[in-house]
Design a binder for these strands. Sequence first.
DNA 1: CTGTTAGCGCATTCAC
DNA 2: GTGAATGCGCTAACAG
Lengths: 355, 355
Amino acid sequence: MKAATIRDVAERAHVSVASVSRVLTGAGAVTDATRARVMEAVDALSYVPHSGARSLSTSRTDTVGVILPDLFGEFFSELIRGMDVAARAHGLHLIVSSSHDDAADASAAIRSMRGRVDGLIVLSPHLDSANLTGNLSGRLPVLLMNGGEADSGRPSIAVDNVGGAVAAVEHLVAMGYRRIAHIGGPAGNLEARERQAGYVQAVLAAGLEPAVHNGDFTQASGHVAMTALLRGRDRPDALFAANDMMAIGALLALQEAGLRCPDDIAVVGFDDVPIAALVRPGLTTLHIDIAETGRHAMERLVRLIAATSLPDAVPDTTRETIHPRLVIRQSCGSPQFSTLDGGASAPARLVSNGE
Amino acid sequence: MKAATIRDVAERAHVSVASVSRVLTGAGAVTDATRARVMEAVDALSYVPHSGARSLSTSRTDTVGVILPDLFGEFFSELIRGMDVAARAHGLHLIVSSSHDDAADASAAIRSMRGRVDGLIVLSPHLDSANLTGNLSGRLPVLLMNGGEADSGRPSIAVDNVGGAVAAVEHLVAMGYRRIAHIGGPAGNLEARERQAGYVQAVLAAGLEPAVHNGDFTQASGHVAMTALLRGRDRPDALFAANDMMAIGALLALQEAGLRCPDDIAVVGFDDVPIAALVRPGLTTLHIDIAETGRHAMERLVRLIAATSLPDAVPDTTRETIHPRLVIRQSCGSPQFSTLDGGASAPARLVSNGE
DNA sequence: CTGTTAGCGCATTCAC
DNA sequence: GTGAATGCGCTAACAG
């Protein structure tokens, strides 16, 4: 038994397919009588419109795609959650595509999106603007969230990683720490590079000595790096890790070594993933409202999509910047802040330029 | 400038659309000469096939849908990650649909999937088998993962919540605890109900007194419940929470009250989300390899989809059961197990009946 | 208000 | 090996 089509419904209701379409889409006027007959047939056949066929006809898919590097950790899942909320609010479906190892793979993914989505949010670091224009054929609305690319002329959202790192270091300096080490992220990662640059910049500005150690954003790498740090001479009195997971790994390494945080070594992370507030001591970190950022990105994509159907639309090439804010918990030596899930924080700001 | 169609390519290459289709799909023999001309045109126009149109023609979408209750917490994100890996391995796209508040909402979601996906994995508790058959029209392959429903005759995967809870309580009893309290999950939640049932059953079997308190799966509710427990008379010496987040909330409440875990009160959770290994003391809990379960579910759905195109396919109505395994960490009084990320555990088992 | 018809973009017969 | 024609299921003019 195959699925019923609009034609089956039309036959059973003794009307034309057009009428069926009218009652189902709500567009066009229909007699109450026909409406009733159609609905009866729909019910009897348990007919469900074929959205693929509808898409082909209307050239709208009511679906948006998200291209991600991977699905690991809380960052991306929170982001997707935010996007999903906004998408649903607009009656849109969400199709996720992740784990693209290289540019070719990512390009293939993006090409396969044609005819499947009305717009795209791209976070994959392998996809720069050139890559996109080459693989996108028509002008599918695309929102870039993969950092860098300030010059692409495409709408984008980026995190102020340098500013966040500077804020972290400045806070540590203000608290009196002087030997501040850094654990960096993966070599090729842009965000990691920016955070490290901010660290170096701020440390030098304070007249201190930078000390960078390698990590890869995993908790394990933070653990390894901190263990090595503790064995080395010239042990630091504070650590700024390029993300929270590494900071937590460092925290555990400290505990295992019988040292206390922040008394012996203070620790600051980046991202403020949910776990950060749950470890002890609570992790001081740079907060990004991830879900909210995802929601905001989706809202913006929706606007982009709407604009493409307008004749006189002003092309949006705005680059938005998300400014992380410092959340102070116990891991950096402020025992006065020890509430359950947070602590004091600098005022939030989310600004956009050029709009 | 609109996106190029297969016809544009055909014109530019001076061949028929059929030939273009042949070189692009790989099906059918083509001269090297024509192939070259077509490829040239494809390149020049940066043509990308319209997957929607292709789907309509082939009646395959190469996309699978996942219906979830929500996207909160690490459980669902890990599950999706596992599914995504398997889906990609089979060249399938993943479309996620979540946050359905009620049955009507969920039904609408599932209906809108027709013509959009080749198969569905359903975790939404609002969708029982009757609901599905009513809204599915044809016979779209569906894998159920929403518990209960053992009688539906549909392929499904379920977690042995009762068995897990029994294992947790038995372990606590074996460790010498006698006043074992429970914090349950949301009222309507089936999994929560099963875990509670297992708890009550095991406690009674041990000749002890059950003591159930209310929670809603959030960390905050665990915190509240534990705080209340501590204030009450007849304070328990152990707690079994219906999930990890509540267990962690309870853990924090203990710390704030100046009590020690497990010395004053032991705590056991359920799920083994990644955080569980990172809190201190490490949380003893029931481990489910979430990502692996997602991967496995997707593999099974792929098989279901493949079977529908076979004429003599044996309908799969198997109900698989995932058995959680107890992971012993420090929170239940086994300080001898104190590695970084885990601890000893009972042997894993994943069995299926009826296959 | 209703029915007829022409696409949407592509894969796939079927003749040549 | 190639091209012309048909249909996938639906919406949207267009006449009636």
